[in-house]
Design a binder for these strands. Sequence first.
DNA 1: CTTACCATGTAAGGCGTTACATGATTCA
DNA 2: TGAATCATGTAACGCCTTACATGGTAAG
Lengths: 178, 178
Amino acid sequence: MANEKKMDVVILGLLSHEPMTGYEIKKIIDNQLKYFWSGSFGSIYPTLNFLESEKAIEKVENEVTGRGKITYAITDVGRQKLKMWLDNPVSKDELKYESLLKLFFGGELGKESVLRQIGNFEEKISKELAMLQFFEKNLESSLNEDEDHLYFLLTVRFGIETYKAHLKWCKDAKNMLK
Amino acid sequence: MANEKKMDVVILGLLSHEPMTGYEIKKIIDNQLKYFWSGSFGSIYPTLNFLESEKAIEKVENEVTGRGKITYAITDVGRQKLKMWLDNPVSKDELKYESLLKLFFGGELGKESVLRQIGNFEEKISKELAMLQFFEKNLESSLNEDEDHLYFLLTVRFGIETYKAHLKWCKDAKNMLK
DNA sequence: CTTACCATGTAAGGCGTTACATGATTCA
DNA sequence: TGAATCATGTAACGCCTTACATGGTAAG
């Protein structure tokens, strides 16, 4: 019922690459997945505990860091769970684009306001695009280091293509309104 | 706290165009907004009641339809509420692209599986694109009938540009994997 | 010695989905 | 007369976000 939980497979997916702490998981979500996924600490840590109780992940013996750091690694049970989700062809893509919603209802406020909305959107997207292009470069040069880098590169390129399309649209839209 | 409710402004925005029933609101969300927004009956009807209690919308005298149909119209209070939201430059765009997530973790299953994921995605997008292009035609020919049609056309074009970028990416990605 | 960041967690609560319930109307 | 669609609504449930709480560590 309600929404289906996905944080578990997100974590499993990230840990299938290498062992990590919850904090590191959050960083990756915010940096690499941010343009097609999101998640907060309040969702990550409880899921981590849940997955451990399920024996899908396990704590890794910590180096003598002394810190309260907890590193997790995926188990065979976890790998199987991940595979099951990956094998399922059904994928729900959910978008809630408030920017577009405001544009859709823009008639109420008039052109100047809509132009402002588009400007805000354009600025946001431009920044993201620059970051993605930076990632792209890094990934291109390290493509043979790790097989997974190919898939990361593909998602980054997806973001780049999408954002370019958005920026093109911003230009066209501004012209149409003027 | 938690997520900010948006269904109220969605309904207000749709009613600012013309009076409607909850059922009609649902249809518009599913047809015109679907590629950047979504919403269910379980969210629409309670919000409708809430907005009426707030006097942001009101029941319209029904024709002698006899049916249990309830048509709502926006009030001045509602228009003001809508304007306040539209005036606010902050917009949260939230995407949960399960398709991309599966791709990002695709290393676990290998190329064939990823190619299948991309194929599924491509098919889905192609269908949506065809529909959007149909909408575009209709809107282009009725552009001078209603001022709002301009804004609808812009959002439809946003969808078209975005989906075209996605399809281009699908092609590139398949080539890279082969 | 203070600022920024690393690091983990809990509590409260909203939001919206899915599933269920109910019945009218239209059309073949 | 049966199926599809129109039409409104409620109940349960769960995900996730925000905000709060707490403390360690590194660097300047």
